[in-house]
Each structure stands twice: as C-alpha cells, then as structure tokens.
Write a protein that binds this DNA or RNA. Structure first.
Lengths: 183, 183
DNA sequence: CCCGATTGAGACACCCACGTCTCATTCTGC
DNA sequence: GCAGAATGAGACGTGGGTGTCTCAATCGGG
C-alpha cells in the first residue's frame, strides 16, 4: 500500500475533526499505515498539524478560486463558496478550533489571506446593497466559519442530513431564522 | 484565601475556554490556589471537566428560566435567551467543543434537557409562524450554540466588540446577512 | 488563645504518548 | 530476478502531566 501523503492527511483530518486528542498511533491506523511511517513523513505531531493547516489552506484557496468570488452578486458568490467548501468542512472545523490554541502567536499568513478574501466578499456585498451594513464583515466571516463547523459536526452526529448541508448554512446565514413577511 | 468551589470552576472555565489543553497546574494557578488543593476538590482532570459541565448546565438552566422562554413570541424569547447566555458564553464554547470528544458515550442528560428546551422554543416559533419551517429546530439549535461560541471567541480575540455580542448573534440568527427589501 | 481543619509548596512515582531505532518484509524500478 | 528503497511491527528511552503523599504554615471556630 503506497504511502499517499495527501490521502494520509485527509484521513488524519477526518479523525482529528471528531477526536482532536487522537494519538499518533490512532492517526496512523486511521490512515492505514504504521506509526513509524507516519513519523517518517511528519516529524512529529506539530508537523502533522502544520501539514494539515497547509492542506486546508491549499484546499480553500482552490475552493475560493472555484467559487469565483468576484463574479455575480456577493450572495451568489457566497452560495458557491459554501458549496465548494463542503468537501473540506470537517477539516475547517478542526483547524478553526485548533487555531484557538495559537492565541499568542502570529496568525498563519495563509489564513489571513483567506480571511481577507471572505471579508472582501462581504464588504462587496455591503457596497452593492445586498448585505446588511450593521453586521461587520469580520463578524460575518467568523459566523460563516462557525456555521460551517457547526453544521459539519451536526452532520457527523446525524442531527442534520448531509444533503441539507449547503441549504442549512446558506439559508440561515443569508436569510436568517425569522420568517420574513414577503415569503 | 478560602477555597470557593464555584469561583474555582469559573476561573477554570475562563482559562480552558481559551486554552483547552491547559495543565492542571495552570488551572490551579489561574484559580489562585495550589495544585494539591485543586486535586483535593476534584479527583482529576475528568472530574474537573464534569464539574464544569454541571456548572454549565446549572448556569444555563437558570439562564433559560430567566429568559422566560414560554412568554411572548419565540423571537422575543430568543433575544432574552442570548442576553442571558452572554455571561457564560465562553463556558458554552468550551463545553460544546469538549462534548465532541464524547461522541460514543451517551450524551449528558442535562444537555439533552437544555437542547429540548431550545428545540421546543424554535418549534413554537415555527408553529406561531414567526420562524421558518424549512430550517429544522435541531439545526437552529446547533447554529445558536455555534454562533454564541464563535462570537465569544471573536470577542476574546478582539475581532468583535463585547458590547455588540447580543446584537451580532440575534440579528444574524434571526434576520440573516441579506439586506431585506422592507428595511 | 488554642486546636483542628485547610491550604500551599514541594517531592515522588507512575503512566501514557512521543520520538527514535532496529530488523525483517514488501514494494518498486531497472 | 535483483538491488535499493520503503514499509510495518515492535522495542526502547524520554518527557511531561498526573495523582498521591508529606509537612510546615495559615486559617477559623469555640
């Protein structure tokens, strides 16, 4: 069984999303490889987490590109963004909670770049009159991440059907829970 | 310096919300007591986390009571709920992520009771026509927890002003990010 | 004021995960 | 088929956190 670095990272992400305290041995078995091999490719647990960060950043850079955030209205772009992010939602959930631990350190510049793109998207929506201006782009970005993570967990626990993932997030984030009069 | 069990728990919650991997020694120092004393009152780390769960459940039972979830419209009740939950938002953020680790075990019945109350609130709102019926109460409940946690973290990191806590959560959850026509 | 209870500081052993290493086996390219 | 590389399984030492214990100091009620 050849060692596929990216596949190992994906398996690790899938496990660590559910159990962030998983052992290196558990990660290795989840990836179907030996613990020694895991250590050969990732110097240690920190290196593994960093590699997961890099993977996540790469994946979301691609997802953002595919979502064509600059095209159409911001609302349309946001729907595409959630759709593109879905395959990596668990990874996002893991990385968001993991990033809480690096409070003091400087934030990874890759994350800053991604954040900036989402913030710019919300700001564009505000300037075009489609997004409320009383909710800051920074908060909307945080909320987007939070909702994606929450929904990913809810799907994992069976509280939300996987097929409803995009709908639940985009509808709640964009339209809110309140039943508006015009509907 | 007398040992105030509840105060120790609150200090522990404040620290663990930010750094979930904090040492028992760090927790003890954060609470201003010795590690030995901490161990005298909480058999171990697991016992401490359980005590935090109990504290959280107690706090939110009270918060829910104070919010009078059965009075007025569901929307009004939800606003009161967020207001009452704010002082314990960090604790909620910690417990929600911590609960992810107990996937296999049976969920704490206290949480189930709280969940049921929130779900019932959303369901009531749906029945009264104030809440959309295409978003399941279970998802709305998860989203509420997620947004509270996300906002609590955003406040801790300075990305959201503490004074905007209630507004950001209730407005986004109820009204959504989209700028509606009637406004 | 005194005596019991509680606390803080430290010492101690224990345990688990980590990281490294070895070695036989398997895989892969030539 | 062969030689080199890569892998899996396991052994091994280490470190850091945990849990327990002791003992002196402090606190608090009678």
């Amino acid at each position: 069984m050849a060692m596929d670095r990216d596949q190992v990272l994906r398996d690790a992400a899938a496990l660590l999303s559910r159990k962030s305290t998983a052992t290196m041995d558990e990660v290795a078995r989840a990836a179907g490889i030996g613990r020694a091999t895991l250590h050969r490719h990732f110097a240690g647990r920190d290196a593994l987490v960093r590699a997961l960060e890099d993977l996540g950043i790469r994946e979301f850079e691609v997802a953002f590109d595919n979502a064509r955030l600059d095209e159409g209205t911001a609302v349309e772009a946001l729907r595409r963004l959630v759709a593109e992010a879905e395959p990596n939602a668990e990874l996002l959930a893991f990385l968001v909670t993991e990033n809480q631990l690096f409070e003091g350190d400087e934030v990874n510049e890759g994350w800053a770049r991604l954040d900036a793109r989402v913030i710019a998207l919300f700001r564009r929506g505000q300037e075009e009159g489609d997004i409320r201006i009383d909710l800051s782009p920074a908060w909307l970005t945080e909320a987007l991440y939070g909702l994606i993570g929450s929904c990913a967990w809810a799907v994992m626990d069976g509280r939300v059907a996987a097929k409803d993932f995009q709908y639940m997030i985009t509808e709640l984030l964009l339209g809110g829970a309140r039943r508006s009069v015009e509907k």
